[in-house]
Design a protein around this nucleic acid. Structure first.
Lengths: 141, 141
DNA sequence: CGGTATCCGCTCGGATACTG
DNA sequence: CAGTATCCGAGCGGATACCG
């Protein structure tokens, strides 16, 4: 059984299906970092913020709320003063985090191949552009 | 050995490391749809556009170029009139696509759990908001 | 400490028009 | 057919200030 690309886009064009949104929550910029960080141990909000690095309070709070709502992260708030809140992965969140960690590791193992592919691609383009005397094209990031 | 969250963020905060960019290319909105579609067969540009549905020419071209440059997609242009171009996955792209397909399938299998988690989360929030008489919070998407 | 509220720049990404 | 070029609006995400 395979999942078709069609299966992940909705019937009416450009309307996203709920599955894709969940995939985006897991694979998102901060989502994947939160899930993989929580694989190792629980974190408090500020700890997690330092561990990940470069994430604003707003985005971390938003990411944690979304992942909690989807059932990937558990929020444990102890009603003391000052407040003490820590986050852990749920069983489902652990599976998701392990998948993302494996994905990141897989990419890491292939980075040299990616770098080579880019060099080859850029070289060919540079030659073509030199011949046509046209400027290079814009790229994603 | 495991991949830490730190490993995927750069030394200087908020500066992204190249690995994370590649992960984003693969998991991106259109990237994952392109890779999984190409697992089954090769596609021409317009075919792929119809198959995926809801993607603009601009974004499909951009996505294909990025994936080609990273070495995940192969572009085969036959110099005929009218032009005939088709796209296939490379060996590396096939692996990436299979990972994304597995990820999508995994999410699909757990959608009912996600829906339940959301209902529980929203119910608790609604109760809390009713008690505090405050409006609900904003969420990601 | 662990957030929320508000403001706002900037990039993503869609629509449209045009080209080889 | 397979793109490129240009314009532009929406919303992602950062900075700052404030609250329980």
């Amino acid at each position: 059984m395979s999942v078709s690309a069609r299966a992940v886009t909705s019937a009416t064009d450009n309307q996203v299906c709920p599955e894709r949104l969940v995939v985006e929550h897991i694979t998102s910029r901060w989502g994947m970092l939160v899930l993989t960080a929580l694989l190792d141990r629980s974190y408090r909000f500020s700890e997690l913020r330092r561990e990940i690095g470069g994430v604003s309070e707003k985005m971390l709070a938003q990411t944690l709320q979304t992942l909690e709502r989807d059932g990937f992260v558990h929020r444990n708030a102890r009603p003391v003063i000052p407040p003490h809140v820590d986050y852990t992965v749920t069983d489902m969140g652990r599976e998701a985090g392990e998948r993302m960690r494996a994905m990141i590791q897989w990419v890491d193992d292939r980075m040299s191949a990616v770098v080579d592919a880019r060099a080859a691609y850029d070289r060919v383009r540079a030659e073509r552009d030199a011949a046509t005397e046209a400027p290079p094209v814009a790229r994603t990031r």
